[in-house]
Computed example of a mutant assay.
Amino acid sequence: MAWDGVSVEVLGRLERYRFQPKKTHAAAIRGERLSPRKGISIEFADYRHYTPGDDLRHLDWNILARLDRAYLRTYQDEQELPVHLLLDCSASMAFGEPTKFDAARSLAACLGYIGLIAGDAVYPTALHHQHAETRPLRGRVAYTRLLEWLRTRQPDGRHLAAAVQRFAHANLPSGLALLLTDGLDEAFPDALRALGSRRHEVVLLHILSEVELDPDLEGDLKLVDAETGEAIDITATGGVLQEYQRRLKAHIEAIQTACRRIGGTYLQVRNDRAPQDVLVRELYAQGVLSV
């Protein structure tokens, strides 16, 4: 069944929310978000002593007349927040009901909507084996373009970690990196560390299906790797399933540790969970969103 986007009712529930980054990120142009960085804007911030070469237009003449001391008025700089929507397009995302990929697209649509209505710059990026130029979307009217972009993506790639590494080293402004992925790549934790080293503020939505978390399998089976096509024959005994659980737990813990060490936010998401519940209950509680 084709992905049908997000309902108007869900978007209406998200109108009041905004992203709440933990740190200031440089932006390409002025936007609607106030930054602690001092600059020239309409919002007064503080006074400082005049030094030769300063712009006399910002000299406070009243203080100069009363105290015979030269002070300049400084202002808060208005900036847009770069919001990077990183959509895992590896073939493993096609698994589940609904698929992990459709769950990721619904979350990306909601997150992108919040950024666009807040005046942030939303950069949608597909993580797959092909490099594609990322162009920012701005304003509520760009939401239809975001939906079309999401509808035309397909889970047919591989090498998630390499795609994250390429993004980390791309010539893009640092900002809020919202990573929607199943993380099924052994090198993924290392790629997360590269992402953090580029000053991105990472929010990882780790999307997994119930079958992956707790497989109910028995008997002789052939397992096929969705990305490489390689097959392996197994007998699903209790011991085999225990070893699978052990390895999955170790991989998830490695991802959580890497995310924590770069100051990121980690959230495990089931593929069948309503996207608005993830945002309103989980991301709001963790401080990623505010009202």
Score class of each variant (00 low, 15 high):
A194E: 14
G31Y: 01
G219K: 15
K249A: 09
R13A: 05
L67F: 15
V10K: 07
R57M: 10
G39P: 00
A236C: 13
H129N: 03
S290L: 04
A108C: 05
A187R: 14
D225T: 06
R281S: 12
S209H: 02
T265C: 10
C259F: 10
R158Y: 08
A26C: 11
E133C: 00
Q20V: 01
V141T: 10
P173L: 07
Y266N: 10
Y71V: 07
L217E: 11
N271P: 03
I252F: 00
V122W: 09
A104F: 06
A126H: 04
G157Q: 10
A177I: 11
W3K: 08
T152C: 07
V83C: 01
N271L: 06
G31Q: 00
I255G: 04
V83Q: 02
Q268S: 15
N271C: 10
R69I: 12
E282D: 13
H159K: 09
H128M: 06
Y50I: 01
R281V: 11
R198G: 08
C110Y: 08
H206E: 12
F188K: 08
G196T: 06
D102G: 02
D46A: 12
E282K: 06
P21R: 03
L204F: 09
N271Y: 07
L204M: 11
W149H: 13
G239E: 15
T257A: 12
Q20L: 07
L289A: 04
D46W: 05
R37H: 00
R145W: 13
G229C: 09
L81M: 08
L267N: 10
E80Y: 00
P173Q: 07
V164W: 05
L86M: 09
E243K: 14
P124C: 03
G157V: 09
D216A: 10
D55F: 07
R166C: 14
P173K: 05
M93V: 12
R246S: 07
H25S: 14
R193W: 06
G39C: 00
Y50P: 00
R105C: 10
L180D: 03
A65C: 08
L289M: 04
Q268L: 15
K23Y: 02
L34K: 03
L146H: 08
V10Y: 09
L67E: 15
H251Y: 01
G263M: 04
A118S: 14
Y50S: 00
A2T: 12
T235L: 01
A70H: 08
D156E: 07
S174K: 04
P98Y: 05
V122D: 03
V240F: 15
I117R: 15
D4F: 05
V278W: 05
A65K: 06
K22T: 08
R261M: 14
K249T: 06
V83M: 03
V291F: 09
N62G: 11
A91K: 11
P21Y: 07
G157S: 11
T134P: 04
V224Y: 04
L111P: 02
P136Q: 09
Q256F: 14
R69N: 12
P189S: 00
L223I: 12
E9F: 04
A103Y: 00
S209G: 06
A121S: 15
R105V: 04
A118C: 04
Q79H: 09
F167N: 10
P136Y: 12
R153Q: 11
A226W: 02
L248Q: 00
G5K: 03
R270A: 07
A177M: 10
A194T: 12
L111K: 03
H25G: 13
Q245R: 00
D120A: 08
D225G: 08
G5S: 06
F167H: 15
S90R: 14
A194L: 12
L59S: 05
